[in-house]
Design a protein around this nucleic acid. Sequence first.
RNA 1: GCCCCCAUCGUCUAGUGGCCUAGGACACCACCCUUUCAAGGUGGCGGCACGGGUUCGAAUCCCGUUGGGGGUGCCA
Length: 470
Amino acid sequence: MSTPRFRIAPSPTGFFHVGGARTALYNWALAKRLGGTFVLRIEDTDEARNRPEWNQGIVDALAWIGIHSDDPAFEGPYLQSNFATEHLAAANRLYAAGHAYYCDLTPEQIQERSKANGKPGYDGYSRDRGVAPGPGRAMRFRVPSGSTVVHDAVRGGVTFDNDTIEDFVLLRGNGSPMFMLANVVDDITMRISHVIRAEEHLPNTPKQQMLWNALGETPPVWAHVPVLVNEQRKKISKRRDKVALESFRDEGYLSDAMVNYLMTLGWAPKGDTEIVPWATIEQNFRLEDVTHSPAFFDLKKLAAFNGEYIRALPVDDFVNAIEPWLAIWREAHPEAVWNQDVLVAMAPLVQTRIVTLAEAPGMIDFLFLADPVMDEASVTKVLRSADADLVLVSTIESFAAGEWVAESIKTAFERVAEAHGLKLGKAQAPVRVAVTGRTVGPPLFESLELLGRDEVLRRLHVGRTLTGGA
RNA sequence: GCCCCCAUCGUCUAGUGGCCUAGGACACCACCCUUUCAAGGUGGCGGCACGGGUUCGAAUCCCGUUGGGGGUGCCA
């Protein structure tokens, strides 16, 4: 028995759909575990919608989720447009063998006939009219009578009555091949043994299986995995949902988190935890275990996975991981004075506080800016009061001398809080807002230490001007 | 309309006739911890769509109902 060959067949549309990513991962997991091959075939035959520069985007997107084109198991990318000769040859063989025929009806005429006889679709009008090939004439497949049973690895046997399947188009009037034909011919040409794809293709499968048979080939193992849906339980689509894999990458989702989450949509690892490394997934993923019903693509759960993965990162890795977003921030703030040591010191404190890497700059920007960005709501809430001013005054006094390390600063401030009859949590609010610009953020005293006594004092003075007290 | 698929907490799922008083995770709520916010800990809320069978026994098998979804292109 030869080694199994899997494939994904995306079309270049400018972005990589998360549903496609999950399908790719399913194929990849199996190809790797079974010692098989993963073929990437880009279906670029819809000339109107395809742009060649998008091909690289597909390769990059796959690489991001761990499917690298330099892996020995990876084959391709192939471009469907390069196989036009095969498509035509197969069509002609089908025609010569009597499995296909030409039809000279225009789409409008077909519609009229359909309306007239009350049945939707093409009625097989030209089946036995002996229409010769010619411009404007489409080649249609002669669907045999009987029924077609599709053996699906996740769903079992699915039976289709051939009477419900119309004689579908193989070649357009302009001679170009349709998806149904090209897809099958390419799978045959590439010796694909397993077709694992989204459930939306299930209705196409009997047609494709008939083509495999008519072409004298044994159909592959089919597997149709459930679609991904949104909150309204509709298939997620570019129009209404966030589906571009690239956008998640750019927002600071970790590849490992994304991959892990995607794999749990329609499948679950053994045991009580869903957070598992790829190696475990690769070892255990099986088509027979894939769920049969659509899965909600839950951004909240994805975020939870991402937070989980971010926290699991060694600090050094975390610092490296957020660097791209920090770089973007620095670019946008050329006036900021960057200090890598300060960042490294803060890193563990921000690591437990962000869910996407893109949030990192917003956590620590006050440490590098000449003045913190004052959040109006925070200022109004805690700074605009006489009490706040009193706390600030005492704090300035208290911070004027003494050892400048987080612990000592905290001890000093605790005395200030006590003097005002306030709990630490409440007392620190005005100080936090004056120094960081916000009511929430990383631990205060550590931040103060890093900022330095002089700068803290300066900001506290500035803060007083906002209380109305100074 | 027609064809096909599907049906366990709000969500993702475990469950393959007795181990189910249905397990975990996300979300939500409460409490603890606490320098804000997180993180972490503990606990809680919450489900086998419905109706018939089959069986000593059904979330698990069968039928029906209802409800969802997908497909119905000279798109892919």
